[in-house]
Amino acid sequence: MKEQDLIQPFTPWQDTTRGGNIYGSGSSKYYRTGGWRVDTPQFEAARCVNCMRCFLLCPDGSIALEDGQVTGIHYDYCKGCGICSEVCNAGAIHMMSRQEESAHGSER
């Protein structure tokens, strides 16, 4: 779905879709939930063994993959739930709290 096809708030009722149906796919990519995040996952590529546990278990599809390698986090969507960090057995992801981030800066 293209971003211009998204239905805007306060669309007249005559022009909106019945039931709120969305005729298209992939519209969630325009809803950037990264702004909800408090703690931010920091990814250390050197420690990653590409077991894919973070990728499989991330509820928001926010683990970035390229050619079968984990390359990082989609920070536009990551809500900071910490599951990736919790399941990573290689210690490649740790959650940085908001205070740490403001004090020391971060990957993003």
Partner: peptide, 9 residues
């Protein structure tokens, strides 16, 4: 911003 219009429909 959406609910009321869906109900009116």
């Amino acid at each position: 911003g959406y609910y009321f219009e869906h109900k009116r429909s």
